[in-house]
């Protein structure tokens, strides 16, 4: 009996934190593996519209992005602009951009490329329609209206 009493006096021993680094490392590796670095610097502000009937874009390697929205820097005004890759682009630059992206890939994959339109929800349709026309001219017909998953 007296032995038990002695233990009680000492209180509960501190929890060993020796395995803490291991746990943290495990998490670290998980995030290192799943991480995808943002490829482009967004120069336009985009808040996506919501939709419920969405589909996932499966193969990320076969998706090209077009960004349309008001520029982040105030000096450029508030009119929505188009961004391709890392810079602002004019409408007539879409054709060459599509072509360059097609040439980057295997010929058999070209018809499977989706152009994903990331458009700010407050944008007017004019620029979107114009961009769509340019895509049609460049025979990039498979498009995706990128949305956030709502509801």
């Amino acid at each position: 009996m007296s032995r038990f009493k002695d233990d009680g006096k000492k209180g509960t021993p501190a929890i060993s934190t020796a395995s803490l680094p291991d746990i943290i490392f495990m998490l670290l590796f998980f995030f290192m593996v799943t991480t995808v670095m943002r490829e482009v610097d967004l120069k336009v502000k985009i808040s996506l519209p919501e939709a419920s009937e969405t589909q996932k874009l499966e193969d990320k390697a076969l998706v090209d992005y077009l960004y349309i929205g008001p520029p982040t820097s105030k000096e450029l005004g508030t009119e929505p602009l188009l961004q391709l890759n890392d810079q602002f682009a004019r409408l007539d630059e879409i054709g060459p951009w599509v072509k360059a992206n097609n040439e980057r890939r295997q010929e058999a994959e070209v018809p499977k490329i989706t152009r994903s339109l990331k458009v700010d929800k407050d944008t007017h349709m004019k620029i979107v329609t114009d961009v769509k026309q340019e895509l049609r001219k460049a025979s990039a017909l498979k498009i995706n209206y990128s949305t956030s998953r709502g509801r």
Binding site: V36, L57, V63, S116, A140, I143, N144, Y145
Partner: peptide, 13 residues
């Protein structure tokens, strides 16, 4: 990290 896979409404022009 960006975990989000792109979702949206697919359309053919």
């Amino acid at each position: 990290t960006t975990m989000d896979t792109d979702v949206g409404i697919l359309r053919l022009l």
